[in-house]
Amino acid sequence: SEEKKKAKERLERLGASSELARELLDRANGNAEKAERLLRKLL
């Protein structure tokens, strides 16, 4: 979806690899905010 694509791009801008961004979104069930929080914990 367009929303998921935007979320993935945002995670990548924050420093996630394409693969990591995809994994985070999967774990967050597509929830962009939750995926971002997970990423911030990792960085």
Results as ranks from 00 to 15, higher is better:
residue 11 L to S: 00
residue 20 L to N: 01
residue 30 G to E: 03
residue 43 L to A: 05
residue 22 R to Y: 10
residue 43 L to H: 05
residue 37 R to F: 11
residue 16 A to N: 02
residue 5 K to E: 13
residue 26 D to P: 00
residue 24 L to K: 02
residue 6 K to Q: 12
residue 29 N to R: 10
residue 26 D to A: 12
residue 16 A to S: 02
residue 18 S to A: 14
residue 16 A to H: 03
residue 32 A to I: 15
residue 8 K to T: 15
residue 20 L to Q: 07
residue 8 K to I: 15
residue 24 L to V: 05
residue 24 L to W: 04
residue 14 L to M: 09
residue 13 R to S: 12
residue 43 L to Y: 09
residue 7 A to I: 11
residue 21 A to L: 05
residue 9 E to I: 07
residue 4 K to T: 14
residue 8 K to E: 14
residue 35 A to R: 00
residue 30 G to P: 00
residue 38 L to N: 04
residue 37 R to A: 14
residue 39 L to T: 00
residue 5 K to T: 10
residue 32 A to M: 13
residue 29 N to E: 09
residue 22 R to E: 15
residue 40 R to Y: 14
residue 30 G to M: 05
residue 1 S to L: 14
residue 38 L to I: 08
residue 11 L to N: 01
residue 7 A to S: 07
residue 16 A to G: 03
residue 16 A to V: 06
residue 35 A to L: 06
residue 21 A to Y: 04
residue 17 S to Q: 03
residue 36 E to Q: 05
residue 13 R to P: 01
residue 15 G to T: 02
residue 26 D to R: 14
residue 9 E to Q: 12
residue 23 E to H: 11
residue 21 A to K: 02
residue 31 N to P: 01
residue 29 N to G: 14
residue 10 R to Q: 06
residue 18 S to V: 08
residue 15 G to H: 02
residue 18 S to R: 08
residue 27 R to T: 07
residue 31 N to Q: 05
residue 39 L to I: 01
residue 22 R to F: 10
residue 29 N to H: 13
residue 40 R to P: 00
residue 11 L to G: 01
residue 31 N to R: 03
residue 37 R to W: 14
residue 13 R to N: 08
residue 27 R to G: 04
residue 17 S to N: 06
residue 28 A to H: 05
residue 27 R to P: 00
residue 39 L to Y: 09
residue 33 E to F: 09
residue 16 A to W: 03
residue 15 G to Q: 01
residue 38 L to M: 14
residue 39 L to W: 07
residue 15 G to Y: 03
residue 9 E to V: 06
residue 10 R to W: 12
residue 9 E to Y: 05
residue 28 A to P: 00
residue 16 A to K: 01
residue 35 A to H: 00
residue 5 K to L: 11
residue 17 S to P: 05
residue 19 E to R: 09
residue 25 L to T: 02
residue 10 R to M: 08
residue 6 K to F: 09
residue 34 K to E: 15
residue 7 A to F: 09
residue 34 K to T: 13
residue 42 L to S: 04
